[in-house]
């Protein structure tokens, strides 16, 4: 190897070590595709309940009684709650699996300082956002739930990009733009939600996979 090639290899090594030590880079594009697919399937299942084609309560009598009494327990009697919980779990689990596979393939430990740092910085906007969403539901501002969740998720992604793959920033921008448009079309949140959590994840994941992972698999 010539001295020039040696220097180039050294610089590449330095760049790699800087990235590996400061960012969580095992995130797989396929995780995005999987999470997005779960979101779209969840949205399809939820559609008839959201738009009144099917009864929202699992047990209509108990459901309406609790709703009239203004009890929070009404939530667990609603199909939507279980569809949402199942969709979220499926998305997280499938996203985890592909990232786990990638970290094994690249021989980078999954859990470490970089993963911890990423988790904390994603959790801050998401937890605060979650509390805000609960308040929106309590005050019956249902139309704001979709744009608000897209806003907090978008901000979480922009924040995450500093601790993980830089491209997450663009996925975040996408969610934020959708949220702002949604504010103009309150009442269509369901569709914006499906585009943001479904389509954008799939598009992002596919691009990332093509860019970084296709050649290694």
């Amino acid at each position: 190897m010539s001295e020039q090639q040696q220097s180039l290899a050294d610089l590449q090594h330095i760049k790699k070590m800087m990235e590996r030590s400061s960012r969580f880079i095992s995130l797989s594009g396929l995780s995005g595709v999987a999470a997005g697919t779960c979101a779209l399937v969840g949205a399809a299942v939820a559609y008839p309940y959201v738009y009144g084609r099917k009864d929202i309560f699992i047990n209509a009598d108990t459901g309406y009684q609790l709703a009239m009494a203004g009890s929070y327990r009404v939530i667990v009697y609603s199909w939507l709650f279980w569809i949402a919980a199942f969709t979220f779990s499926a998305a997280v689990i499938s996203a985890f699996i592909f990232t786990y596979i990638k970290s094994k393939k690249e021989n980078i430990p999954l859990w470490g300082t970089t993963a911890k740092r990423l988790m904390i910085n994603v959790a801050i906007p998401l937890i605060v956002g979650g509390l805000f969403l609960v308040k929106l539901i309590q005050s019956n501002d249902i139309g704001l739930i979709a744009p608000a969740s897209l806003i907090f998720y978008g901000l979480a992604l922009v924040n995450a990009s500093k601790y993980s793959l830089n491209e997450l920033r663009y996925l975040g921008y996408g969610q934020l733009i959708l949220a702002v448009i949604n504010l103009k079309f309150i009442g269509y949140g369901f569709y914006f939600w499906a585009i943001g959590f479904g389509v954008l994840h799939i598009v992002y994941g596919t691009i990332m996979w093509l860019k970084y992972e296709r050649h290694n698999s």
Binding site: D10, I14, K15, M17, S21, S22, N107, P109, G112, T113
Partner: peptide, 27 residues
Amino acid sequence: SRIRLGIMSALMVNAEVSFNDLKELLD
């Protein structure tokens, strides 16, 4: 050495790095 280069790279972009994290990073 590649190892010292790796150590320096990690310390440049992090305020501090633990012995164990360096060990994992450099294998």
